[in-house]
Simulated assay, not measured.
Amino acid sequence: MGLNGSIPPDIGNLSFLVSLDLSWNRLHGGLPKDICIHNKLPRVKELQLSFNDLEGEIPLGLGECQQLEILDLLYNNFGGHVPREIGNITRLTKLDLHWNNLSGTIPKEIGHLSNLEFMDLGSNKLRIHPKRSREQSYTKTQGNLIQSQRENCVLFVFTF
């Protein structure tokens, strides 16, 4: 596409937006902190912003995007931690955050995503919480690969 610039805060005013794919551009700056707060983007099902130069922390407000099914933020420069509020997006089927600068512990709330079919958190500086319960959707297997206990679900997490 070749778009250059930042994502304006007014993006949340697009109340009828269902799918937003701004991948493979030269977008920079961060995501608006209030992207889904106060019923903004109430219908959005897909948020695909991969292969840009977005930075800052992943907004906690994404946890209020209740219709979101696909969250694709790979190949950016997001830093900080993976917000535990992502565990509130119960319709999420795909979560791809690999190739960012995320660090800290993978939140146990990700285990609440019962519809999740694909997750990739690789190529970040994430670690697994040492006290995982059986109820969570991931378990440690060979090396540093995390796999789901659910059928038909692929989860990739490579920790360093």
Rank of each mutant, 00 (worst) to 15 (best):
L54H: 06
G61I: 02
R43E: 14
I106W: 01
G80N: 05
G56F: 03
H28F: 15
S6N: 09
I58R: 10
N4M: 10
L17E: 14
H38N: 14
Q48I: 12
K125V: 01
P130I: 06
P32V: 06
N88G: 00
L54F: 04
K108P: 01
Y75A: 00
P130S: 09
K45W: 03
L92A: 09
D53Q: 13
I110W: 12
V44K: 04
G80L: 12
R127Y: 06
G5N: 07
P32L: 08
K125H: 06
M119P: 04
D34G: 10
G12Q: 06
D96S: 12
E64Y: 09
H129I: 00
I128G: 00
C65Y: 04
I128E: 07
T93H: 05
R127N: 05
I128R: 01
W24L: 13
G29E: 07
L14F: 15
S123N: 11
P9F: 08
L20K: 03
C65L: 11
P42F: 08
N124H: 10
F51W: 15
G122F: 08
S19F: 14
K125T: 05
S103A: 08
N115G: 00
E109F: 01
D53T: 11
W99N: 13
G12I: 14
Q67R: 11
H98A: 03
L54S: 05
K108H: 07
E117L: 08
K108Q: 09
C65Q: 02
M119E: 03
P32C: 03
G87V: 10
L41A: 10
P130G: 07
K125C: 01
D96W: 06
L121Q: 05
S114R: 14
G12Y: 08
E117H: 01
G12R: 06
N25E: 13
G111E: 02
L62D: 02
T90N: 10
N101L: 10
D72F: 03
N4T: 15
K45E: 12
L41Q: 07
F118S: 07
L102A: 05
